[in-house]
């Protein structure tokens, strides 16, 4: 006897949604911190360091995320490091996000006019103050639309975590669909959940973009 899509199934999807949100938050928080480090190293002015971060970014942008998740989950297991599925995908997404956010912010840092840094140097401000007080506040504004856009991609991208057996929203939908034989209904609900998560962010992102465009006209 096949179960119908009811409260229990909906609750199962909600738990999947919970994991999707949690994974996104962890990946974004980790990616935010590591990405900031990547962006700062990428623009530090030391040729060797810049070159290494460039390769780092190149590797994670140039290979499929799926492959990176495999490497973290199965690859590290081969070296004797057996990770919990959540920990493994969290690491995978964090590293991947650090490369993408690092590259977005690298561009934003370099988009802040050179004169800003020169004025700060002429005033005797050190690197840490130049970055914290002058460059980053302006770079963050410049990069906000792209950063939000990336966050939306990340939310949807977490569905790839299913590949190593992690049950997030998309995988939960697949399971429920297989049990109930009501794929249209189940994936309709799953899609709606993703949409409710992503759409407000996208909307906020384009509003920011419009506001920034207005501010730069002034």
């Amino acid at each position: 006897m096949t179960p119908h899509f009811g409260l229990a199934e909906f609750g199962f999807l909600l738990r999947g949604l919970q994991w999707t949100v949690l994974l996104t938050l962890v990946a974004f928080a980790g990616g935010f911190t590591a990405g900031l480090a990547v962006a700062l190293l990428r623009t530090c002015g030391h040729k060797g360091v810049e070159w290494i971060t460039r390769i780092y970014i190149g590797i994670f942008q140039g290979t499929p995320l799926l492959l990176q998740l495999f490497v973290v989950y199965y690859g590290l297991a081969l070296t004797g490091l057996k990770l919990d599925a959540f920990v493994a995908v969290a690491i995978g997404f964090t590293v991947n996000a650090s490369a993408f956010l690092g590259e977005i912010w690298r561009g934003a840092i370099q988009a802040v006019p050179r004169g800003q840094t020169e004025a700060a140097m002429a005033l005797g401000l050190h690197y840490s103050s130049r970055m914290r007080d002058i460059v980053l506040p302006q770079a963050i504004r410049i990069s906000l639309p792209a950063t939000i856009g990336y966050l939306v991609q990340l939310i949807k991208g977490t569905s790839l975590a299913a590949i190593v057996g992690f049950i997030e929203l998309a995988r939960a939908g697949q399971i429920v669909s297989n049990q109930t034989f009501q794929p249209l209904l189940v994936f309709g609900v799953v899609g709606a959940m993703y949409f409710i998560l992503c759409w407000p962010l996208s909307w906020w992102g384009s509003r920011m973009e419009a506001r920034l465009a207005l501010a730069s006209q002034r």
Binding site: G115, A119, A120, D133, I134
Partner: peptide, 10 residues
């Protein structure tokens, strides 16, 4: 003092 002022806009 610079030609393009370089005040901090934020």
């Amino acid at each position: 003092v610079f030609q393009s002022f370089n005040l901090f806009p934020h």
